[in-house]
C-alpha cells in the first residue's frame, strides 16, 4: 500500500497528456474532480480539478473535448482532453445535471434540474439556442441516433418529454413510474428505455408512436423492494443486453432485450449510479456514489472483478478509446 502512492504519482508525472490505453473517465460529485481510469491496469492514472459538483460528462465525437455538467457552478465546462485544462464554460442554465450531445456533434441538450427547463446550447458559438419548458426536476437526457428527437425525463412530474429537435418543441409526454432518472435509445432508434428510481421499474417505449412496450420490474433476494431504485441504463454493443444500475440495492441488473427478462444481478459497490463499457466491450465500469469507488464487471461471466477507489461520490462515467 505504501509503495503504491509514489508509483501513482510517478505515472501522473510521466503522463501529463492523455494516456496510451483505453480509459474510463469518472466525475466525482463531492470532490469536484474527474478521475481517469486506465482500462488495462484498472488503476486511476490522472485526476483533474473541475467545477463544482460535476455530474453528467460526455466526450465530443473525436474525443478531443470533454463536456462536464458542473451543477453547482451553473455551467457546462469544456475540457481539453489532451491537457486536462478547462478551455471555457458554456452557458447552460441553472443547475445542469445531465445532457446529451446531438449526433451533429454540435448541440448539447441540457437538463436544468432547478429551473424545469431543457436548455439547447451550440458548442461552437457558445450560445443558448433555446430553452424548453419541461416538468419539475428534469434529469434524464437523450437524443435519438438520427438526431430528430430529444428526450427529457422530469423526476417530480414523472414524465418523459419528447422534443422535436427541428422545432425544439415538445410533441409528446408519456407518464412513467415515479422519479424517472435516465433515458437511453437503442442504437437503431426504435426503442427508448426510461428508468424510474422510486417506482423501481424501467419502461421501454416504441419510439415510432411513443407507446409503452413493457415495464420491467426487479427483485433481488434479501434486498427490500423499496431499495431497488433503477438509475443508469446502458445497452451493450449489439443491444442484446441492457444493464440497469439499481442504486441503493447495490446491484446491476442484466436484462435480455429480446424477452425483457432479468437474467441476473451483479453485486457492485454502494449506491450505483451510472455505467460505461470499456471500448473493447469486455468490461463494464459502474460508479458507486456511497462507497466512493468504481466496480469493474467482467462481461464474459458477469462477475465484479475489482473496485477502484476514485474521488468522493463518483457519478458519471464515460469511455475514451484509443485510436
Amino acid at each position: 500500500m505504501r509503495l503504491k502512492k509514489p508509483a501513482l504519482l510517478l505515472c501522473v508525472a510521466l503522463m501529463p497528456t492523455a494516456g496510451l490505453g483505453d480509459e474510463i473517465w469518472v466525475s466525482n460529485e463531492k470532490s469536484d474532480t474527474v478521475s481517469v481510469i486506465d482500462v488495462d491496469t484498472l488503476e486511476v492514472v490522472r485526476e483533474y480539478p473541475v467545477g463544482e459538483r460535476p455530474r453528467g460528462i460526455t466526450f465530443s465525437r473525436d474525443y478531443s473535448h470533454l463536456y462536464i455538467c458542473a451543477s453547482d457552478s451553473d455551467s457546462v465546462q469544456v475540457m481539453d482532453v489532451a491537457t486536462g485544462e478547462i478551455l471555457h464554460d458554456l452557458p447552460s442554465g441553472a443547475d445542469p445535471e445531465q445532457f446529451a450531445l446531438h449526433p451533429n456533434d454540435r448541440l448539447l441538450y441540457i437538463a436544468n434540474e432547478d429551473d424545469a427547463v431543457t436548455t439547447v446550447v451550440d458548442t461552437e458559438t457558445h450560445r443558448v439556442i433555446t430553452q424548453i419548458n419541461v416538468g419539475v426536476e428534469p434529469e434524464g437526457m437523450a437524443v435519438s441516433p438520427d438526431g430528430k428527437v430529444a428526450i427529457t425525463t422530469s423526476e417530480t412530474t414523472n414524465m418523459a418529454h419528447w422534443i422535436d429537435t427541428e422545432t425544439n418543441t415538445i410533441f409528446a409526454n408519456t407518464l412513467v413510474d415515479a422519479r424517472p432518472r435516465h433515458a437511453e435509445f437503442t442504437d437503431d432508434g426504435s426503442k427508448l428505455w426510461v428508468s424510474s428510481e422510486i417506482g423501481g421499474t424501467v419502461t421501454v417505449f416504441n419510439t415510432a408512436d411513443q407507446s409503452e412496450i413493457t415495464k420491467i420490474a426487479f427483485e433481488i433476494t434479501g434486498v427490500h423492494p423499496d431499495k431497488v431504485q433503477p438509475v443508469g441504463v446502458e445497452l451493450n454493443h449489439d443491444n442484446s443486453l441492457a444493464y440497469v444500475a439499481l442504486g441503493p440495492a447495490n446491484h446491476v441488473a442484466v436484462v435480455d432485450t429480446a424477452t425483457y427478462k432479468v437474467l441476473e444481478y451483479v453485486l457492485v459497490g454502494r449506491r450505483v449510479w451510472h455505467m460505461a463499457f470499456s471500448p473493447d466491450d469486455s468490461k463494464l465500469f459502474t460508479t458507486n456514489g456511497v462507497s466512493g469507488d468504481v466496480s469493474v464487471i467482467d462481461l464474459s461471466n458477469h462477475k465484479a472483478i475489482k473496485s477502484i477507489k476514485v474521488g468522493r461520490f463518483p457519478w458519471g462515467a464515460v469511455a475514451r478509446p484509443t485510436e
Binding site: S154, T157, M159, H161
Partner: peptide
C-alpha cells in the same frame, strides 16, 4: 409542482 404536470396534461 402539480400544475407543471397539469400544464402538459
Amino acid at each position: 409542482d402539480n400544475n407543471t404536470t397539469g400544464g402538459f396534461m
